[in-house]
Design a protein around this nucleic acid. Structure first.
Lengths: 148, 148
DNA sequence: TACCAATAGTTAGTGTGACAAATATATGCA
DNA sequence: TGCATATATTTGTCACACTAACTATTGGTA
């Protein structure tokens, strides 16, 4: 394989990732979901893990701290999330899904799964395994941190 | 495959695409390349195609027009690119790589190929074919436009 | 106790992405 | 010719990614 092709694959990867996010965001919009795709990812993880700190959550969703701060800001403004001061550590917050936030997650979850499905038409289960393996290999190749 | 897994794949795709771009951007920075990853993509395409209009270039690199306008603005500010009024169509520009721009492309091209290569360690040629096929299938599944 | 390094989170700055709306020009057709 | 429509580009707004710098706090240690 020539080196030129490597660049080509980076391009396809970026292009496809953007298309997936854009498509989902469009569906979010027409469905009036009132959150963005990334905000949804954060909400979903909060529903599955109570009382996370921002740093813990950032590690879960693989976003950096500044990005997460702003997403949490927006979710607080929409009253889906609350920052509760950590009882022992005054630097830290425990993130808490509000009643409205929980309702939102339960309302959106099935709709979003439908949206996701669209991307994977015409692909088989073994395609998914291959795809996952390749994506994770690339990720590990570039990630300085230890990966289990 | 359960629906939950679909969401998981979207997540992996997004995470990996971001890592690839971030890694490349880091290398660009330590190498003092003086351009961003996206600016490089634009420069490279300009080197390979003289006298494109902005819309033509936008279609080539799969960015929308406003995004491209801003990238071109930055490249003009760095004197790598010039907007030349189109002789027949006063709405349009012909994009022209300056001497400095051409020099930059030739200087960076080999370095960038090395960077790209890092991502693809531990993967075989047939992995690439699979990867390309899957990425393109996903893209087409979601793209409203006609795809050849 | 007093320092010091590490940690949690925020702020600021730049670049990119998506989308809508605005502007200017071009083109087709009555 | 004259108007409606289409096209090329720009502008504005919001969201996200990444870096660097900053505040506040914690915990270890001399």
């Amino acid at each position: 394989m020539t080196q030129e092709l490597f660049a080509r694959y980076s391009f396809l990867l970026d292009r496809t990732a953007r298309k997936v996010k854009q498509y989902a965001q469009q569906q979010f919009k027409t469905g009036e979901f009132d959150v963005t795709v990334d905000q949804w990812l954060v909400l979903k993880n909060l529903a599955e893990n109570e009382l996370l700190s921002q740093t813990e959550l950032a590690n879960l969703v693989f976003k950096d701290n500044p990005t997460l701060t702003r997403i949490i800001d927006l979710l607080c403004k929409k009253s889906y999330v609350e920052r509760i001061p950590h009882p022992q550590d005054r630097r830290s917050f425990q993130l808490h899904l509000t009643e409205a936030g929980l309702t939102k997650v339960n309302e959106l979850r099935p709709k979003i799964l439908e949206i996701r499905e669209k991307a994977w038409e015409n692909l088989t289960a073994s395609d998914f395994e291959e795809f996952k393996r390749i994506l994770n290999t690339i990720y590990k190749n570039l990630d300085g941190q230890a990966i289990e």
